[in-house]
Design a protein around this nucleic acid. Structure first.
Lengths: 228, 228
DNA sequence: CGCTTAACCAATAGCCGATTGGTCAAGCCA
DNA sequence: TGGCTTGACCAATCGGCTATTGGTTAAGCG
């Protein structure tokens, strides 16, 4: 019987002796190996097994704890933004937003439909790109809310935040406003009609077509900017 | 004409002179009022107007910046968790994870495939529910990473965090470990095979079937717990 | 009464050192 | 030879400290 196995049994005994509740921190390895009278290497082998078993979790600079590692709540948006490209963001939108439209067609309320209609009309009447973007944002946000699913809505918010941050770096387009026959207007209308008529498949397809078109436009502009 | 109004016009002129891009930081108030030759009180009145106009935004200890205040990056996970149900979480998984599997089939590297295989094998060899869950988590996480899309991976992390927080309260099942013929094992294998053979449609379908099955199980258990 | 000035408050950032898990290499011993 | 021990170092994290900065208040002054 190797010494490392002995360290594991000692460790188990030490844990069993004191009935420690979940999420309690146990002594640092350098102390613990002294307490148990085993070498740090053997102690770490035992801890590794306990970690695989899910009994403990460890973090550098923090310590070793009992129970399940807590969810990382401090997800820094910027950390994702820095490593992500516009192409990735649009790819994610193509995956997520059609699914949202599908669900929205099933669960949208009258209030949601009215809000969507307002956004479409306001978007067509917009004279500034920034104003149009606000309406566009609000429309897609409303579709997400129309799913009636708070988790899906939260995911959309996250994606939207990343999107805004990534596109943020791009230079502002010229002073001229969005044209009245901008392709997005008709596409938004098609999405709205599908959701209003509870045609989930059509809503999904319409949203996918819309995002794909926007994506192509965006990446074209990005490519042109790269050539310069 | 009061001095405070003069400070505002000076401030506007100063900003117009140098064509500063969005999100650039301008000097601290104590410096700026010296540069413009106005008192801090008057400068602050001007800044207050610009802030109401949406030209700048300010934050204590940070500074004054041009443009729109950044979205709140500290998205509190708990706020979503409190208003969401397990059913919503599973519904979101059904929407997101098949899409991830689809992308994973297109972009997975050898390293990802090996990691998936390791997770499947370790999951089958697991003797504890907790240990099995760890392997399961790691498998799904690897699928997300295999998309090669940092944004999609980040979205998965968010959803996963919510999921774990929501399911957190459920009591641990008995001391007996997961059975060797647990349905998830075969389903994971099917997903892996599809991804490894680059069959995106099959990967998507396999993942959807898997999540739906897990979802049904989970909601059954939840319903039983509610009856008690 | 309004402006100026100064001081103070609270939030933020940056720095440095201590702590801690993770890793590696040399040495040691059976 | 192979495993264990030891020590050192690395990277992440935390806590304390200081400096900076927007926000606020109060006294002074014309």
């Amino acid at each position: 019987m190797s010494e490392s196995a002995g360290a594991l049994t000692q460790l188990r005994a030490w844990l069993a002796q004191r009935e420690l509740g979940e999420n309690t921190r146990l002594p640092p390895e350098r102390e613990l190996c002294a307490l148990l009278g085993v070498s740090r290497g053997d102690l770490r082998k035992g801890l590794e097994i306990l970690e695989r078993e899910g009994v403990i979790w460890r973090r550098v600079g923090k310590g070793t704890f009992l129970g399940i590692p807590p969810a990382d709540e401090t997800w820094s948006l910027s950390s994702t933004v820095e490593r992500s490209s516009p192409a990735e963001v649009m790819r994610a939108r193509i995956k997520l937003e059609p699914a949202l439209a599908f669900e929205a067609a099933l669960h949208a309320t009258k209030a949601h439909l009215e809000e969507m209609r307002r956004c479409i009309n306001a978007g067509q009447a917009a004279t500034t790109w920034r104003e149009y973007e606000t309406c566009d944002n609000r429309f897609h946000k409303t579709v997400a809310e129309a799913t009636g699913n708070t988790v899906l809505t939260a995911l959309f918010d996250q994606l939207n935040a990343v999107r805004r941050a990534v596109v943020w770096k791009r230079e502002r387009t010229g002073p001229e406003g969005p044209p009245a026959d901008h392709h997005s207007h008709a596409e938004h209308r098609r999405i709205f009609d599908a959701i209003a008529s509870r045609d989930a498949r059509e809503a999904e397809a319409a949203m996918r077509a819309h995002i794909e078109k926007v994506s192509v436009k965006l990446l074209q502009v990005a490519a042109e900017a790269e050539v310069e």
